[in-house]
């Protein structure tokens, strides 16, 4: 079984499906010689402002925040090139009711959508940790989507990227 097929299974599992767009019009100039990995959702990743990125990924720009969605990040970044982010959602991962996808946005990054994590019930917990780039002090936020298409957002989290020094 090829990875491509696995990818297709994921798309089929998603109630909304995913618009798979690949084409040179979505490529940013520097990668003209490269090809996107098939299935990689270029449209939302290429959006330059938060509203467009949300529109292209979750089809709305307004999602109610839920105390179930925990976004943890440092208040002040030690290194803006590698800001650790932990996302944990208090939600069942049952076969018929689970967190399907978590979208991570960084409001004013050149392309605000940073990552999409697609889960299956076998994950047991909608949780992940990764490190992301932030050029300046900014807010980050995540939106969790259930397999039934219900959206819930974390509270936005401000991460300060500062010059440092003067320490105590």
């Amino acid at each position: 079984m090829s990875n491509m097929m696995k990818r297709r299974e994921f798309i089929n599992k998603s109630a909304l499906g995913m618009v798979v767009v690949a084409g040179s019009s979505y490529l940013i100039p520097g990668i003209a010689n490269a090809a996107n990995v098939p299935g990689w959702p270029a449209a939302p990743f290429d959006a330059k402002v938060l509203d467009k990125a949300m529109e292209a990924s979750i089809k709305t720009t307004s999602v109610t925040t839920s105390p179930k969605v925990h976004l943890t990040a440092p208040t002040i970044a030690e290194n803006g090139a590698a800001v650790p982010v932990t996302v944990d959602v208090d939600y069942p991962m049952d076969p018929d009711d689970y967190i399907d996808t978590i979208y991570l946005y960084i409001d004013h990054n050149p392309t605000p959508l940073a990552s999409e994590f697609h889960f299956t019930p076998a994950n047991g917990r909608a949780y992940f940790q990764e490190r992301v780039k932030m050029a300046k002090t900014d807010h980050m936020r995540v939106v969790a989507k259930t397999n039934k298409g219900v959206l819930m957002a974390s509270a936005p989290r401000e991460v300060k990227v500062t010059i440092g020094g003067c320490g105590g």
Binding site: F45, A82, V83, L113, S115, H118, E130, V132, K133
Partner: peptide
């Protein structure tokens, strides 16, 4: 997972 260039 799908990643953008924002991942470190």
């Amino acid at each position: 997972l799908d990643w953008s260039t924002a991942v470190s």
